[in-house]
Design a binder for these strands. Sequence first.
DNA 1: AAATGTTCTTGAACTAGTTCAAGATTTTAT
DNA 2: ATAAAATCTTGAACTAGTTCAAGAACATTT
Lengths: 194, 194
Amino acid sequence: MTEYQNILRNINRYVELNEQDEQEFTSIIKTSSVKKRQFIVQPNFVCEFQTYVEKGAFRSYFVSDEGEDHTIQFAIEDWFISDFNSYISQEPASLFVEALEDGIIHQIAYQDVENLCEKNPKFERFFRLVAQKSFAYAQKRVLSNLGKSAEARYIEFQAQYPTIVQRVPQYALASYLGMSAEFLSKIRKRLSKA
Amino acid sequence: MTEYQNILRNINRYVELNEQDEQEFTSIIKTSSVKKRQFIVQPNFVCEFQTYVEKGAFRSYFVSDEGEDHTIQFAIEDWFISDFNSYISQEPASLFVEALEDGIIHQIAYQDVENLCEKNPKFERFFRLVAQKSFAYAQKRVLSNLGKSAEARYIEFQAQYPTIVQRVPQYALASYLGMSAEFLSKIRKRLSKA
DNA sequence: AAATGTTCTTGAACTAGTTCAAGATTTTAT
DNA sequence: ATAAAATCTTGAACTAGTTCAAGAACATTT
């Protein structure tokens, strides 16, 4: 079992890689370990990498002018996370990406990915499929919450991602679900009694 | 000037097409004209096409369980629109896509696009870049509205897309901006006095 | 095991935005 | 031109969710 087993298996769900392809891909990976509360992306710095979570839990969030924070995405094992906007345009990020636990990540740099895509159409294809799926998924998330009450949004998230609910601080979850931390606390109390 | 001038110019912003490429692409286009209030996508039918707007204005929207409608996207000349989720997965749509004016569209079918991508990496590349940009753009839209009041959301949209504000019915705009039609009416009144 | 920092809970007062209803205006079809 | 349909406006009553503040529980460091 190699260091890159998991990330390669992930890619193989979309395209079939031979040894040569796998070698091309793993040669651009940079692996690091991160400590809880460490930032791997910060506003005003360009988000150079897409990050694959080998171990740990992360969240990306945006701090609005009024100083509230808004969680955009959680990522645990086998998920990718980044400030995608910044990554794609190679302009300064507006998000933080923060480790919620100690973890291990594999990162791939924008220019390395672009070169790889140009060299090997299998990767062009992989990144097309992933981008399309991410976009579709993001739209689905928005839809599934439209017109729902705060309580309904929580119940649905809890049903769909029970592990994340347990693993993530409540204020981060509240800010993901678009409600105040206090209100989420009240919802949970109400539900635990019923 | 050909029938496909505009859509080809759009693609050429991302990849350079020679005559042969252009020919491959235009051969899969299906052009039609649509009447105001006509639906080009409907829930429960698979969204077979991506639609390029040659002329006209469209909106995609979702009707929640409670019967409210929520506009997801507007599209005018030179934009693409679809129920992307349905298109990508080739599963039944959950959105309506409705013509807001009489118009002309160019459509490309899922399977034709996939075949084209497999045959010609330039198109693989084009659709990767477009999917990535759409995803980044969708995220940006979400971010730019987070934590803002209904009035601020309206003001910003109006500043960024003045033509759309003029061209689109107010209830559709309100449902795009996430507020009731009545409230948008009140906001506008307030602003016109100030 | 004490001390410090972080996260979670609870209630009371508040408010941005909704809902309802009815009339006014604009657009579309005949 | 006229009627019918669609859209927009306005005010009054309401409510889901926020904000503030202070204490309780939990986690982390020394």
